Amino acid sequence: MKNESNGIHDSKSATRNQILKASQEIFEKYGYKKTTIDDIAGELHKGKSSIYYYFISKEDIFRAVLDKEACELKEEILAAIGRTNNPKEQITSYIEVRINAIKKLGNLFDFQKKQYLSLENAKELRAKYETIEIEVIKSILDEGVRQGIFTIRNTYMTALSIMTIIKGLEAPILMEAEETIKERLEEMLPILFNGISAVAK
């Protein structure tokens, strides 16, 4: 009986993930406002009732997609910065991962830069996703200060500033070739590090 119950749970989880995957692609293609439950159901060759069994509304699906992409981004960032103990290299890894994720996690980045007035608690949601990233950057900066690599009075505000700078690069990055993006980073990172690195006395 227990194995049968687990099988049903796994099947429901798999179906829910299929809906999320299809919705992720459709939202990115048409945008939140233009996407309908009919679009999602049609993509999956299912009836709308099948979608409503797992999600109560289009907004509910979109929130789940945003959570999925935010989780994927955090996992990629943590994996990248976990490959080194050097705070400068960790900041570089964070920036590279975030920039490379812009095209792959389009819904999350689109949501963060646009006004979703029709989405309930949009402001709180945006703050939630930004806080996740700020905390990661701040932890790197705190360690850099502890090691004497960075000289920073307020690591939270510096983390916020770094994220704001990266956000400013998002629009041009979407239109640039990979080599151009790499060149832009190579020019930007020394400016960033020279500004926060500790000066030898």
Rank of each mutant, 00 (worst) to 15 (best):
L108R: 11
I95V: 14
A80H: 06
I134R: 01
G144C: 00
A122H: 14
E178P: 02
I132C: 03
E124Q: 15
E120Q: 08
I149N: 01
L174G: 09
E75T: 10
L66G: 06
T131G: 13
I102M: 15
A122W: 11
N100C: 08
I140Y: 10
E76K: 13
S161M: 05
K138A: 04
R153M: 14
S118D: 09
L141K: 01
S139M: 14
V65C: 14
A171P: 03
I81H: 04
C71Y: 12
M157S: 13
V136A: 05
V136T: 08
V65S: 12
I149S: 01
I134S: 06
Y94N: 00
E72D: 11
K167Q: 10
I102P: 02
F109I: 09
I134N: 04
P87D: 00
F109M: 10
Y116N: 00
N100I: 09
I162C: 02
D110S: 15
N85G: 14
Q90H: 03
S93Q: 08
K68I: 05
L160T: 01
A101Y: 03
G148V: 01
E130R: 00
K74H: 06
L174Q: 13
D67S: 11
I137W: 00
I77R: 07
N121K: 06
P87G: 01
A101K: 15
S93Y: 10
L174D: 14
T164N: 09
A101N: 07
K104T: 08
F109K: 15
T155V: 11
E176R: 12
M163G: 03
S118I: 08
V65D: 12
I95H: 07
S139T: 10
E130D: 10
G106I: 04
E176N: 15
M175A: 12
A127N: 08
I99H: 07
Q112W: 04
C71R: 14
K128I: 14
I149L: 05
A171G: 06
G148P: 06
N154S: 03
K103R: 09
I166V: 11
I99R: 15
A79W: 08
L78K: 11
A171Q: 07
L125E: 08
E179L: 08
I137M: 02
N107H: 14
R83L: 15
D67I: 12
T131M: 09
K113W: 12
L174I: 15
T131C: 15
F109V: 09
A171H: 05
N154W: 00
A127I: 04
I95Q: 09
